[in-house]
Design a protein around this nucleic acid. Sequence first.
DNA 1: ATTTCAATGTCGCCT
DNA 2: AGGCGACGTTGAAAT
Lengths: 271, 271
Amino acid sequence: MLEPSRPPADLARELNEALRRRALILVLGRCRVAYEGRSASRLGEGDRLVVVKPDGAVLVHRPTGYSPVNWQPDSKVVAFAPSGDSLVLRSVRERPREVLEVVFTRVDAALVAEGMEDPAELVMYLDERELRDYLARHPELIEPGLRVVSVERPVGPGVVDILAVDSRGRTVVVEVKRATAGREAVLQLARYVEALRRLNPGAPVRGVLAAPGITRQALELLNSLGLEFRRVSVERVYEELRRRGGGARGPGLLGFLSGGGASGSSRGGSG
Amino acid sequence: MLEPSRPPADLARELNEALRRRALILVLGRCRVAYEGRSASRLGEGDRLVVVKPDGAVLVHRPTGYSPVNWQPDSKVVAFAPSGDSLVLRSVRERPREVLEVVFTRVDAALVAEGMEDPAELVMYLDERELRDYLARHPELIEPGLRVVSVERPVGPGVVDILAVDSRGRTVVVEVKRATAGREAVLQLARYVEALRRLNPGAPVRGVLAAPGITRQALELLNSLGLEFRRVSVERVYEELRRRGGGARGPGLLGFLSGGGASGSSRGGSG
DNA sequence: ATTTCAATGTCGCCT
DNA sequence: AGGCGACGTTGAAAT
């Protein structure tokens, strides 16, 4: 860790060298921030954490909250510079042109982490794709007698999640949402149904919204448009996938965590 | 900074004490992560930065990218615990029920920042609301002779940004976007126009999409629906607002930064 | 508390 | 590279 009491010029030099070595940099201190680009913002003085990643991503974090107050997704040009008693971090990104500047009036800590390696891949379960594919393989969860015709079929206004035929031979458009459906989802489904009705004039086309939940207004809109809602339990599908996938899908939370480490001991369920 | 070579039990105790004192905690090290809640994910071993904020927000950052690979927005229950040779961070959030666990197999650095204060307010310029209100005050930027009837008027499917009347007495629905408009924006506008035509059958209703740009497909869709695109320069509006607002709106990027600090010296425009 | 909608959204996938 | 749609979206305003 660098000594925070150093002159800004020394700090700037060391941190720029760290940037060249593609290190991750943490700076804790008092600063103000200015951003100009797709939008523009100003932020007065406060205590913050600033992270500069090896790829040029910059994050300015306040003491609270999930999201950074200011940031730069990744930028080719990142540099520290002294400015009187202050240390300035400037990050410029092209396409779109965006400039982020952080002026530290006090640096409490500066930490440099070199040679970080993270080859692991994030395995995500039950995103919309997985839910959609599962429902396509098990259309009886949507409706008894439903036969799937196609998955991810492009029509005029977009792509239909699941296209099927019901027990009475009617075309069924299924729109899948993994979270509570709002009005937007209903209108999306309505567009697809309309497009398919135009495609086959006269043929009956039903529209089904399959989601774990739906907002009240969305349900009203859905009903007024003659469309249908079908509740699907994401938890149930997840459990089912876990059961069927067996070991391939991996164990539960605690199993995963205690399994792969240097130590095999388990910890008690703390509150 | 805590010594990383310490036994996990010691580290856990110190970090939990820091949590109680509402400190911000940084841990750099090798870890694996498991999440279960709205979705579920697993992440194998890698070098990462973990941030725990005083409000219970947890961020797990890889060496690259803007967004954390795993996180917890803010949680009441956050605790460190030893597990064999490992240090475990467990964060539980209710409503929705979500659990995040980080298992450190190696801790390279642990930093505790206490008493961070950040009272400053972020001042953001030219969000959609500001752009819409400016256009409502200066409808000539959309079209000469346009008179504004109402702003943010609710109709059936949503809220019309600007409702106006053109020089020939026709109703004009204006949909404002602060970024490049896509198909979604066109369909949104189309829905509003349709709703207003139903409201006043027979009366002519025009639809205008006002945005700094539009994608090719969106423009084709717009034309096919008989709607219109009007280019508005966000930069020009921003400059105009800066000029009119005067000092209240604040100076430009460099002016703001060199103005408020302990030192008044300016830095050269570095590359 | 719920719902809606914008966002410097970001990110991955596809053309 | 541009467009498109999902996201553990997040966040704020309005109901």
